[in-house]
Design a binder for these strands. Structure first.
Lengths: 162, 162
DNA sequence: AAATTTGGTTGCTTTATGCAACCTACTATC
DNA sequence: GATAGTAGGTTGCATAAAGCAACCAAATTT
């Protein structure tokens, strides 16, 4: 994608910030605890110029913070900000989808486990704000308070598909 | 991205399939109920050649199914397969992140509500397989049964960051 | 019968990717 | 103390993809 999306849409907006594949691999590494340029480079296989570019963007967007950890400003560490860390839900959803659809039963290369028990966690679940569990069929997408013009019309036109 | 990722990783694998921005906007529309070429075109702003390409890929990957709905094979409808529909968790996570970080309080352009009550749903939550709720700090990423070589080493090297 | 819609394809220009080479400041080794 | 290697980049170039406009045939609407 060359031009940013201009739609008044949270999905389009998030894609403008983290719509890039390399960016997700970098974030994956950051979630795994990577912090140095070389670590990102080695663990993702990205080219240096692209890594340089993506890290700068991520810092710009406030998803990573860059620390100077050398004597004269030639060693750096990157770490997730709270905003970056809040992408964990998306990351987990992606990882779980991949595990489910890309590998045979019992062949998942990565697992997310409960720290205490060591047991793999379950899939992310929908819930109401007060904690009642919901199924996909229980929810519906509608124009929000900030809906404008085309987006509003588009959403209002959604046929109710229960 | 020009070359597919070769890492033995569910995130990289899923990005090979749905790592493209336009693909996500197309999927968004599919979740909103769009089914026709023109609908996708109008509602996303994508160029026809790219749309054609992305739809073919999505059909190829088994995320969309293409139905012939015309008399002589010139009218088509696309709809989500179960595999495609199972991306809803990722989509919802993206939408919620966008709503949270891209707009001021009460300015979200799109809302996901509970069908019955009309009240916006809460954020996706982590849980164990038997339904106990978990916090981000309660989980940990480890090599799975199918972990191989580099990925295995990389994951094993994760410093425990509680 | 004419105009419009659908679902594309083709060709062209601009932008991004991927790769290799290079570079400077530090760090570890002998 | 000299040498080699590492960290964190930048630059230049070939190739691939994005973005845009023009075109098109079959079907549908007016």
């Amino acid at each position: 994608m060359v031009k940013p999306h201009t739609q008044n849409c949270p999905v389009a907006g998030m894609l403008n910030i983290v719509g890039d594949q390399w960016t997700w691999l970098i974030l994956r590494e950051a979630f795994y605890g990577a912090s140095r340029f070389k670590e990102f480079e080695r663990n993702t296989g990205i080219a240096k110029n692209l890594l340089s570019n993506r890290l700068a963007r991520l810092v710009d967007e406030g998803l990573l913070k860059k620390f100077d950890i050398g004597q004269m400003g030639t060693r750096y560490a990157y770490s997730l900000t709270p905003k970056g860390r809040s992408l964990n839900t998306v990351m987990i959803a992606m990882l779980q989808w991949g595990n489910e659809h890309l590998y045979a039963e019992g062949e998942a290369p990565v697992e997310i486990i409960e720290r205490q028990t060591g047991v793999p966690i379950g899939p992310l679940v929908l819930q109401t704000r007060d904690g009642r569990r919901l199924e996909p069929k229980d929810i519906k997408t509608v124009p929000g308070p900030g809906a404008k013009g085309a987006v509003c019309q588009r959403l209002a036109a959604i046929k109710d598909n229960p």
